[in-house]
Design a protein around this nucleic acid. Structure first.
Lengths: 180, 180
DNA sequence: TCCAGCATATATCTTTCCGATATATACAAT
DNA sequence: ATTGTATATATCGGAAAGATATATGCTGGA
């Protein structure tokens, strides 16, 4: 999914600025689904405007920097539909945490324990936030995607809680054997 | 986690060529944890060699292209430990599938159904492969990471199976209302 | 009260990375 | 015989990520 499609999708739910698009991938419903950056968004919006897929209305704000609000055009809706209809690329998941866990035998068990505990706390915080369900830009698919996120995070949390101790025991057991 | 660290990690488990490093991120234990490409690996190996973190022994193979096997040095082990000790960056997850589901209301319900079914099949295949547990480069953390992967994929699969019908009903219900 | 920090808002620059492609060969299957 | 797959390295071009620059108002703590 290229950045242009990501922007087009958000704008299809309502006119938005580059700044608001970024927020949608940080706090609102698209959080955890996809990420993008200003370095990609602003050039994408320029390109979309040139292609006539969005139109830009510059809003001079009294005491703020000017805000450029983009709205989708009919051609834009067509392009979005086409992009969404293409066979989806495989999920791309990269986790520093899991990579480090893979090499946990190289680290002191106390560091590993700390990382796992931080991770558990992270899942708990996020699940609490998701449960509250405050932020969302509320498309139809939102509840479905959101529910899947909650299901997956819950199972990850449960796994960490229930396997933490055995894993740490295994690690210190192994290093104890080496020391003997 | 930059590509140099990813390569260093794999090489720390045993001497490997660029080709074998790539495979470790496709089929062996690091699958689903991180991805990388030849375009990143080969330059990274050159840089690691120049920095003295790995050494390269060129293996002339009779009837195959020469194979460059890289081994980690003591300095390399130090650099790896340092990189693994840094606070992990947040997971980066990007899913075309979930992005499309978020905009499912724009697509014909039959297309959405097809995508979900393909997804269910994908999880089933992968879980079968992971259950068999054939491929792994077997570090100590391998079982822990592998188990977490199985837990998460299982819950995703269960979620899709149990919510598929209600979601599709909701989508066609909504479009029926529009048509009336 | 003052100043730090945060939120709003756009833009660009550099480094890194991804995907595609080129090259070469052996082996298996059709 | 020919197609496809596996082994193996290397590089190019375009896309993206992350950091930084700029400007300003609001809020909260020292």
């Amino acid at each position: 999914m290229d950045t242009k499609t990501l922007c087009l999708g958000v704008i299809s739910l309502g006119a938005a600025s580059g700044y608001e698009i970024k927020k949608a991938f940080e706090e609102d419903g698209l959080n955890h689904i996809y990420h993008t950056s200003y370095g990609s968004i602003y050039p994408a919006l320029t390109a979309l405007t040139e292609e006539g897929l969005v139109i830009c209305s510059e809003m001079a704000q009294a005491k703020r920097p000017d805000k450029k609000v983009y709205s989708i055009t009919e051609a834009g809706r067509g392009a979005l539909l086409e992009a969404l209809s293409a066979p989806p690329a495989e999920d791309k998941f990269r986790s520093d945490f899991l990579f480090i866990m893979f090499f946990a035998h190289l680290l002191p068990p106390s560091s590993v324990a700390k990382l796992i505990d931080q991770r558990i706390a992270w899942y708990e915080q996020n699940l609490a936030k998701m449960g509250a369900g405050g932020d969302c830009i509320c498309s139809k698919g939102d509840a479905f995607v959101h529910g899947m996120g909650v299901a997956v995070y819950s199972s990850a949390l449960e796994y960490l809680k229930s396997h933490r101790q055995a894993f740490l025991d295994q690690l210190s057991g192994a290093s104890r054997l080496v020391a003997e």
